[in-house]
Amino acid sequence: MSAQSHSIRKQAKALFGEQRLGPDQQTRIALFIQGVKGINAAILAKIEFQPLEWAPYRFLHNQCFKEVELSTLIARATEWSTNPAVYMDATSLNLALWQETDAAKYLQGPFEIDLQFYEYLALSHAFMADIRFLPLLPAHLPLDTPFLAALAEIEEENGRQIQSQIRLLKDLDLGLDNDRKEALIERKWTVVESLYDRLLTEVMESMQESAGGEE
């Protein structure tokens, strides 16, 4: 993790310890999570066109539906904002999410065991492993609101779903050595890390604005 990311997450942790996540912040987080889950579900929708005996099929076929389920869950658990500016910001971030991850590239054509498939696996691994809110919340904070409980449930489910990515990233033979594989994974992680940093920065700014408005 870059020093900048480390610093942003440290600041977010401090702020989340002081202030609760209100509707504006919940909306930003929920739309980002839905963006991430939407990308993964859209790409994975192709999996149903693969032959049953295609080895990665059994690893990935239920992940598509699970992502849709989690997206619905966060939608139902969110206290939605009534501030149009929040939706404008969130849409801008979701556009960046599609552009910077190159997600559209993975929607084209059938899956094959190739570099593009490996890149997709690296991207979805970063989605599930790097975008975590629980480490930013104080350990003593009860997860007893619908929103926080949903975040916890999503992270727990991500831990199970990511097993498909872990196995395939480790075991797929693309003729690359581990160092080259790690470098490729690292590139995707850097992109996701930066997008998540942007979300956290916007959430923190929004919290500071809300706090300022209350004074």
């Binding site: 691994h125 492993a129 629980l134 480490p135 919340l137 350990a139 003593h140 831990g159 990511i162 872990i166």
Partner: peptide
């Protein structure tokens, strides 16, 4: 429950795996 939350928050599952 706090010890467990700290554990869950501070470890990366894939690292321990």
């Amino acid at each position: 429950h706090i010890i467990k939350r700290v554990g869950v928050s501070t470890f990366e599952l894939y690292g321990i795996q």
